[in-house]
Write a protein that binds this DNA or RNA. Structure first.
Length: 506
RNA sequence: GGCCCGUUAGCUCAACAGGUAGAGCAGCGGACUCUUAAUCCGCGGGUUGAAGGUUCGAGUCCUUCACGGGUCACCA
């Protein structure tokens, strides 16, 4: 049996079992194309430009320039619109970035080829071979001399004017979202830029990019519930990492004085517009600096990103304009709470009363200590009110088990959180390097765990042992890439900056 | 997990107070060689998310379930 017959006998069955009239029509067109001996899914295409490249490289040319010289292109793209007018047809092809008009004339391609185009649909990917010109309305257009099919599309595309609006469909079939909605591909282009620029920034400063375990025996470095899995051959429980922190600091002990990692973390917690179970984190560590120097470095990094991406030192976010001009506000945690919580100053002299008040804000998990009460108040009442980039410095030591205590006030940590648009974007500290103190802090955390605090830190003696070999003074910081991208791409939900956010299967 | 909202043609949306499920785009047929949300004439397309219930009659009211969005709780 020849390959051709084989193909014709293959059952025409799409994943979706009940087909609409439009899908049946497309299957019929596919059959007709095969009968004509046309390769519906060819192996390769000889192209000279992408749609984007045509638009980028030739938009500057005038009608006269395009007439004076022949600019020939072989450009692939997906058919997005078709306007047929008898023996001439205009249509647009697109890639994820740009659109290009094509002019098809019967007298140029011949009656047979012109008729063949009737078997092509909106959504098909085709190759157009022709020369560039400008229409009388001055639109850059390819006058097609040849065209061929690169892939048949068996389903109709969403509506051309409104695009794909259904949020659930946009996430489940992200490819349709990318085809139909230019804002979506623009968002992910920004995300890619953010990550590329971060690499450039740190590489230029002599940092080494590393990868540390995603599967860990003791999930440490943050306070969150982990995902659990099992390794068959070793017969041990493993956890997907909630943070790379403790491994990166082991590397600094090993003499890698400037390291960074951009990778996924996994936290088994709720899903909302700021949380996805897997999310991307940048963590970097630099020996011999403290958290004040980290603030300077952070300002430099963000300023670099926003300049490269937006060409200025600010960007819009929702109703706001976020300005990254230096220096950013540096506000002590306790002062932030006192200033923005709306509570009378005297209430902070009554720890018991404050703990009780904080308990009313989180009835499911009431704080037990003054430090935790302040943390709750900060989260519930303060964070949302901070819009411009602000370093919240020196939070309570008790909620910072991996940070150095401030020598001038042992109750505070040498740590900051960076808040922008009400979101925690970064978290950084002068790393706790004293193995004895680290062990004691772990044990305090273990005690809290016994009293039912599931999110206290686990004791990691292997890590303490690494500290016993000597970790030099080190500044370390984590930056949430998804949230950072939300800010820079002006998107209000984390699902808008993650290509395939977690959804329940249908 | 709690509460609120949503789910109608391939897509975007209508459908009063319970009374024959509609439009635009897309599709099909026809006209049209500079159109661009092309235009003009004609046609087809629905188990109204699922299952029950109330009613003479349910897209609409009630119950349960599924998925999604918002919000609160947990977390970054």
């Amino acid at each position: 049996m020849s390959e051709q017959q084989n193909r014709n006998n293959r059952e025409l069955k799409l994943v979706q079992e009940e087909l609409s009239d439009q899908e049946l029509v497309r299957l019929e067109k596919w059959k007709k194309l095969q009968e004509k001996g046309i390769e519906v899914f060819p192996h390769r295409a000889e192209i000279t430009h992408s749609v984007y490249e045509v638009v980028r490289d030739f938009s500057g040319l005038s009608r006269e320039e395009l007439e004076a010289k022949v600019y020939r292109v072989k450009v692939p793209g997906r058919i997005m619109t078709i306007r047929k007018m008898g023996r001439a047809t205009f249509f647009h092809i697109a890639n994820c970035r740009s659109r290009l008009q094509v002019y098809l004339r019967q007298d140029v391609v011949g009656p047979e080829n012109y008729e063949l185009f009737d078997l092509f649909d909106i959504g098909d990917v085709i190759l157009v071979d022709g020369r560039l010109f400008r229409t009388k309305t001055d639109e850059l257009t390819v006058l097609a001399e040849k065209f061929s099919l690169l892939a048949k599309s068996f389903h109709p595309l969403p509506e051309k004017w409104h695009g794909l609006q259904d949020v659930e469909l946009r996430y489940r079939k992200r490819y349709l979202d990318l085809i139909m909605n230019p804002e979506t591909s623009e968002t992910f282009r920004i995300r890619s830029q953010v990550i590329g620029l971060i690499r450039k920034f740190f590489d230029e400063r002599g940092f080494m990019e590393v990868e540390t375990p995603m599967m860990q025996v003791i999930p440490g470095g943050a306070l969150a519930r982990p995902f659990k899995t099992f390794h068959n051959a070793l017969g041990i429980d493993l956890y997907l990492r909630i943070a790379p922190e403790l491994y990166l600091k082991r590397l600094v002990v090993g003499g890698l004085e400037k390291v960074y990692e951009i990778n996924r973390n996994f936290r088994n917690e709720g899903v909302d517009s700021q949380h996805n179970p897997e999310f991307t984190m940048l963590e970097f560590y630099q020996a011999y600096i403290d958290y004040h120097q980290l603030m300077d470095l952070t300002e430099e990094l963000f300023l670099y990103l926003v300049r490269e991406i937006h060409g200025k030192e600010e960007c819009p976010y929702g109703e706001h304009i976020i300005s990254f001009k230096r220096p950013w506000k540096r506000l002590r945690f306790i002062d932030a709470v006192k200033e923005f919580s709306g509570l009378a100053p005297s209430r902070f002299d009554d720890p018991k009363g404050l703990i009780e008040f904080a308990g009313t804000l989180t009835p499911d998990k009431k704080p037990t200590t003054y430090a935790k009460a302040l943390d709750v108040i900060f989260d519930k009442l303060v964070k949302d009110r901070i819009v411009q980039p602000t370093f919240i410095i020196n939070p309570p030591r008790e909620i910072s088990p991996l940070a150095k205590a401030d020598p001038s006030n042992r109750d505070e940590a040498c740590r900051f959180e960076l808040v922008i648009a009400g979101m925690e974007i970064a978290n950084a500290f002068s790393e706790l390097t004293d193995p004895f103190e680290q062990r004691q802090r772990f044990e305090e955390q273990a005690a809290m765990r016994k009293t039912g605090d599931e999110e206290s830190h686990l004791v990691d003696l292997d890590y303490v042992e690494a500290l016993e070999y000597g970790l030099p003074p080190t500044g370390g910081e984590g930056i949430g890439i998804d949230r950072l991208t939300m800010i820079l791409a002006n998107r209000q939900s984390i699902r808008e900056v993650i290509l395939f956010p977690l959804l329940k299967p249908r």
